[in-house]
Design a protein around this nucleic acid. Structure first.
Lengths: 187, 187
DNA sequence: GTTCTTATTGAACGATCGTACAATAGGAGG
DNA sequence: CCTCCTATTGTACGATCGTTCAATAAGAAC
């Protein structure tokens, strides 16, 4: 049902996020959503939680370098960060200002995400005796990733996912962070 | 009426973009929208055209350095790039995949925008004998601007508009582009 | 004043929206 | 078998959606 909601958001944004279409997508009857979720907004919050769980999942990388590389790689994993999912994110971002519960969750999840990045950067700086502003780099890296993803999905003919990843690595390198790009196991 | 539509998009995204609310916002009666615009989607396209006209307006800067600085400065002008306008942009971006007419316009406007940036970068490279990939820098600068704007509007307590501008200038500098930041006339 | 075009109004239409609710199905525990 | 709890269904409701359309207001042209 959460998956069905994501699919609807991906198809037509918040306009397509209706009880009717979600139930049809999930193959269940109309009244079921309001049985499991008291309101439609609550379903939206659950959906956002589900989506961010994926982002904040345990990163099994050993070194902080591998951890950051893992972030970059998974940020442009075409299974998760495709046009459909971008629309879902755009729709949810557009509702953050309206839905207080969603806003609180979003602020928390974004903080966690940035903290994970910042922590890895600080560990790298400690290991290699670097003098960097880890929080600032994390913030700018997130901005770059979001912006590249936006560009890629809105006009994908412009460049490739590989180019987007390269841009991120280039950004890190120009900020003093060098890391061996890890190759994801191709399954 | 176009302004009223932007205001509605800013208040509640595409969900609030209804004939009723637009007319109420504009202070006119219900039937007027369909008199000037055959359909609601056509109004949305007009709104997007109006919004991008502002971005692509004639840049009166003399030097290419000033031109790029003008882009950065106006990208974080709080009159235009506030939370309300972000929501309008998010809503429109979310509809680009659905509305063919909107998609065509968006592709064209984005191409113009990137061309203006690329052209200025090429002129700088010519003047200063630099060997740069202007198109790539333009693309990454746009991504950084979009991402920073997104971050700023979604959790504005994180940093300031001045910091966002500084991030852009820092990015350009680390890519070999140095430019004197111009101070906008404060009117 | 008359005529024509345009701007604007407000009511009406069927469709769809979110939610509530009574009714049914099914499985677990006794 | 009976009883409870939960899962699921389908209908119903008032509200709002986009669009259509006849009616009116307002000027411009003559």
């Amino acid at each position: 049902m959460i998956e069905a909601g994501i699919a609807c958001l991906g198809k037509g944004g918040m306009t397509a996020f209706t009880i009717d279409r979600i139930c049809r997508q999930a193959g269940v009857s109309r009244g079921l959503v309001n049985h499991h979720f008291t309101t439609k907004e609550e379903l939206l919050v659950s959906i956002y939680g589900h989506m961010t769980d994926y982002l904040l999942r345990e990163n099994t990388a050993q070194s902080p370098q591998q951890q950051i590389a893992g972030f970059v790689e998974s940020s442009f994993d075409e299974d998760s960060f495709n046009k459909s999912n971008l629309r879902a994110w755009l729709a949810i971002w557009g509702q953050v200002a309206t839905n207080a519960e969603l806003k609180a969750l979003h602020q928390g999840r974004y903080f966690q995400y940035r903290q994970q990045l910042t922590g890895a950067l600080i560990r790298i700086a400690d290991l290699e005796n670097l003098d960097i502003d880890a929080a600032s780099i994390a913030r700018r890296l997130i901005a770059l990733i979001d912006g590249l993803w936006l560009e890629y999905c809105l006009h994908s003919n412009g460049f490739s996912l590989a180019a987007a990843k390269a841009d991120c690595y280039h950004f890190l390198q120009s900020n003093g962070i060098s890391l061996e790009p890890v190759h994801q196991p191709e399954d």
